[in-house]
Design a protein around this nucleic acid. Structure first.
Lengths: 110, 110
DNA sequence: TACCAATACATAAGGATGTTATGTATAAAT
DNA sequence: ATTTATACATAACATCCTTATGTATTGGTA
């Protein structure tokens, strides 16, 4: 069992949460923030991140702006109004899920 | 985003944990216990459970005994010695993962 | 008693999600 | 001058779970 298998399926709510907290972020920044927040535990791969962000854009969850930084381009992502609502729902579900996990891992504390 | 997508990848440690706590269990019993423990939140499908159990057996994580209940057969699963060790590791990883999730979902509490 | 729900196993086809590998390009550090 | 970090993107592949289907016994209920 690969360790990184665990967060399969949790990436989307994680990213939505970060966007809700930080307003406007670009892809690379998201990977770095997740790494920092989790002290290196979760490392989002680019192959997972970028397709996911594109999908969220297609679905109208986020919208994008390009910004030039010197000769380089950054693509900033922001939650749309609909995206914010969906994020609230996703957060409730994620918290429920975490509680469920807790009920299994620590049945006595519950 | 389907709600059930969340625990993709967490099923294996969940099942190992239940086997560690309860010693000896059969498949259907596992699905029922997860449902009860999580108050209906997590419902393991048979299509996910049985192939997983078979894989764990192949890998020597669990061993099985058949038991006849009337005219029906139950297949009981027990962790092997190696399986118990792997379960400890898996639990540490799962707890780490849960902490990481918490650091993202509740950055201020951390 | 006929039918449906619950119990109990199993597997195959398909979908969703992530990894690994690869490619392009600029900027900073050594 | 070369490597590392920044910054995007995509394709092939693997993994994991869902949905659907199949078999069979047991218990409840109309």
């Amino acid at each position: 069992m690969n360790k990184s298998t665990l967060y399969k399926g949790c990436l989307e709510p994680i990213i939505m949460r970060l966007l809700k907290d930080n307003g406007r972020m670009y892809g690379y920044q998201i990977t770095q923030m997740v790494k920092e927040l989790t002290k290196g535990e979760l490392q989002i791969t680019e192959g997972a991140l970028y397709p996911l962000l594109h999908r969220l854009e297609e679905q109208g969850v986020v919208e994008t702006e390009m910004e030039n930084i010197g000769n380089r381009v950054r693509k900033y992502y922001t939650l749309t109004k609909a995206g914010k609502k969906q994020t609230s729902v996703a957060m409730d579900e994620l918290k429920m899920f975490m509680q469920s996990l807790n009920l299994i891992v620590n049945p006595k504390l519950a």
